Computed example of a mutant assay.
Amino acid sequence: MTKRLGGVYAAYLVFAVVFFGPVLFMLWSSLRNNVDITGSLFDIGSPLTLENFTNLFERFAFGRYIANSFIVAGGSTILGLVLGAPAAYVIVRRKLAALGFVTLLARMAPGVLFVLPLFVLSIRVGGPDSVALNYTLLIVAHLIITLPLCIWLLVPFFEEIPISIEESTLIDGANAWQRFRRIALPLALPGLSVALTLSFIFSWNYFLFALALANERTLPLTVIAFNFIGQGSNDFGGLMAASTLISAPALLLTVFAQRWLVRGITGGAVK
């Protein structure tokens, strides 16, 4: 029994090193001078500094890039939930599995498939010259990521709600919208939390659409991080600091909502 527990804890330790090791190394490197990172990779005695973080805000409009990321990721997540929740409910209650599969195809397709049409559309409507229009195009583009995800995360939660609960409201004359808003939606609140968390993380980390569509005033964090790598010049300290700031919101949101994430992963597994 003791040997078995020892093997389990050893496996936990290995997984912890594999998953948390790179994150801790990123955080540690963000607090080191660039010369220390390139000179001695694992020198634990090297001095720590916040210079990499201060340089980010001195050399770049980093506050604006953070705001851009929140606008695009937050906007596409909220819009994905607003459109995805009713869509998932209709798919379940009307048994439109084929329609649900069609929405999933957009999530399965590579993002490169949508870049060229979206880029041409952006040029035609004047997206590069308008900040508001550029934000709108980026949010709509990120719906390709968030909307199918919201739908397929919410479908199992709506399937778990007994139809008899909704049918009981017919006595009071409740219509379909009232049944969805007052009965189904509150009961699917854990699913909404899961969909919000995962959609935000996926949208926050995605950079392909922003790389092709964003102008210099709407660039998000994921794109600006590439400015720290160039031929003959590699600012690893700045890159690690930028990566830390990029990863922080997604990591904090994951830790905060991990209980709902576990339920979302297993949602629909037991009926």
Rank of each mutant, 00 (worst) to 15 (best):
G264A: 11
G74R: 06
P190A: 13
V270D: 12
L13Y: 13
F42Y: 03
F19N: 05
I224V: 13
F19P: 01
G74F: 05
E58I: 14
F207G: 07
A88R: 01
A248E: 10
W177M: 08
V270Q: 11
W28N: 14
L189I: 13
R217E: 10
I171L: 14
R94F: 15
L133F: 07
K95T: 08
F114V: 10
T197F: 08
V112C: 00
Y135W: 07
I183K: 07
E51G: 00
L252K: 02
L81K: 05
I139Q: 14
V8M: 12
L251Q: 15
S69F: 06
G232S: 08
F42M: 01
L27D: 13
G237Y: 03
L113S: 10
W177L: 11
L219M: 03
F209G: 13
A16Y: 02
D235Y: 01
V140C: 01
A250I: 02
G75M: 11
R263K: 11
L153F: 08
V155F: 03
L13K: 13
C150Y: 02
S168P: 00
W177V: 11
V8N: 04
L185F: 06
L105N: 03
I201Y: 13
S233R: 00
F62D: 01
V120F: 11
L138P: 02
T222W: 09
V140Q: 00
L56Q: 05
A214W: 03
V14K: 08
F228Y: 09
V14S: 03
L116A: 14
S164T: 15
G267F: 15
T54P: 10
F200W: 11
S122V: 14
F57V: 13
E216Y: 12
P47H: 00
S69A: 06
F256K: 13
F101A: 15
H142V: 07
F101Q: 15
I246L: 12
S233T: 09
R93C: 07
Y12D: 00
S168W: 05
G191I: 09
Y206V: 05
T222P: 04
P117G: 06
W260T: 09
L185P: 04
